Computed example of a mutant assay.
Amino acid sequence: MFNILILAEENDKTRELKNRLSREGYVCTLTPPGNEPEKIAAQQAPRLVVLDVGPDGEIPTLDTSSDGKGPMIIAVAFRPRMQELATRDDITDFVLKPFDVDELLTRIRRLAARAKATPPSDIITAGDLIIDTARCEVSLGGSPVELTFREYELLKFLASNRGRVFSREVLLNKVWGYEYFGGDRTVDVHVRRLRSKIEESGQIYVETVRNIGYRFKRVI
């Protein structure tokens, strides 16, 4: 579900906007901003906010996340506030008042499509291979792949640097740590085991670069 929060006073235009978004399948809430718009946004946890900006007063900060993963925000405001809005990193787009419902709908659809097409930053995909770095899980063709901790860390590092070639020494430092005193053939052993688990179908993910080391294939 794609949640949209309209922080605005209820009137003919905002009701029409809400109703048309709901008919298109969005989960849409129309709420007056009141004195605590930040609290309302935090409770609703929307993917996108349509924010009605008044002619004066402070513009609320609705993205309070530390990782920049807060909601996209379309500000609706009069022209004198446009310059101020343009300096705000948390404002994704803005529309002039009095706004046209069709124009605002077009902008919302475009942002929603962009958000749906962009995979979360903690998901790495390569063909049928999916690496969920938030959950430390790997799946291939929809089936879970059981990896040891070191196999997982090796795969994650290579896949996060797709196309780059790393020597065995660099991989030892990056994956095993600088305090690891084992030989660099340890890397070969783990790559071989990793390949046996993710390349059963014949699809190559980890390539050997002769006399140098390994890389995760750029194009799958």
Results as ranks from 00 to 15, higher is better:
Ile40His: 12
Gly163Ser: 02
Val138Glu: 00
Ala77Gln: 08
Val175Arg: 11
Gly70Ser: 06
Arg109Phe: 06
Arg15Ala: 05
Ser139Asn: 07
Ile6Met: 08
Phe94His: 14
Ile131Trp: 14
Phe2Thr: 05
Thr29Ile: 05
Gly141Pro: 14
Ala159Ser: 15
Val49Pro: 03
Asp100Glu: 11
Gly54Thr: 10
Met72Asn: 06
Tyr152Asn: 02
Ala117Gln: 08
Gly183Pro: 03
Arg88Gln: 02
Ala113His: 08
Leu7Val: 13
Gly141Met: 06
Arg81Gly: 11
Val95Ser: 01
Ile204Cys: 09
Glu151Val: 05
Arg164Val: 15
Gly202His: 11
Asn35Trp: 00
Thr208Tyr: 03
Arg88Asp: 03
Asp93Pro: 00
Glu24Val: 09
Pro37Ile: 11
Thr61Glu: 07
Asp93Leu: 13
Pro55Ser: 09
Leu158Glu: 10
Arg185Trp: 12
Ile123His: 06
Tyr178Asp: 09
Gly177Phe: 06
Gly142Glu: 11
Arg193Pro: 02
Arg15Tyr: 07
Phe157Met: 11
Leu194Tyr: 02
Thr186His: 03
Ser65Leu: 04
Thr92Phe: 08
Arg15Glu: 14
Ser201Leu: 02
Val53Gly: 08
Glu58Val: 07
Ile4Asp: 06
Arg23Phe: 11
Leu7Phe: 05
Cys136Met: 11
Asp102Pro: 00
Trp176Arg: 09
Pro37His: 04
Arg47Glu: 14
Leu172Thr: 08
Cys136Gln: 15
Arg210Ile: 14
Ala77Asp: 07
Glu179Tyr: 06
Gly213Thr: 12
Ser201Asn: 14
Lys69Val: 00
Leu96Gln: 00
Gly202Ser: 08
Gly127Ala: 01
Glu169Ala: 14
Gly68Leu: 09
Ile59Ser: 03
Arg210Thr: 12
Glu38Asn: 05
Thr29Cys: 05
Ala134Gln: 10
His190Leu: 06
Val170Ile: 15
Gly213His: 06
Lys116Ala: 14
Val219Leu: 13
Glu146Arg: 05
Glu38Lys: 09
Ser65Ile: 00
Glu200Met: 02
Asp12Tyr: 07
Asn11Leu: 03
Gly54Arg: 12
Pro119Thr: 13
Val27Pro: 03
Tyr152Ile: 12
Lys156Trp: 00
Val49Trp: 04
Leu96Asp: 00
Glu24Met: 14
Arg168Glu: 01
Leu105Tyr: 04
Gly54Gln: 13
Asp52Gly: 05
Arg20Gly: 00
Ile198His: 01
Ile74Pro: 03
Ile124Tyr: 06
Pro71Met: 04
Tyr205Gln: 06
Leu85Phe: 11
Arg88Thr: 10
Asp67Thr: 02
Leu172Arg: 15
Val209Ile: 14
Met1Pro: 10
Phe216Pro: 09
Val101Pro: 00
Lys18His: 12
Arg192His: 07
Pro55Ala: 03
Arg162Asp: 15
Phe157Asp: 11
Arg110Trp: 03
Val145Ile: 07
Leu172Ala: 02
Val187Leu: 11
Ser22Gly: 10
Arg215Gly: 01
Asn19Ala: 09
Gly54Glu: 13
Arg107Thr: 08
Phe166Arg: 08
Leu171Gly: 10
Arg215Asp: 04
Arg107Phe: 01
Lys217His: 10
Lys18Arg: 15
Asp63Gly: 00
Thr61Arg: 13
Asp128Asn: 11
Ile91Ser: 03
Pro71Trp: 03
Asn161Lys: 13
Ser66Phe: 04
Asp132Asn: 15
Lys197Leu: 09
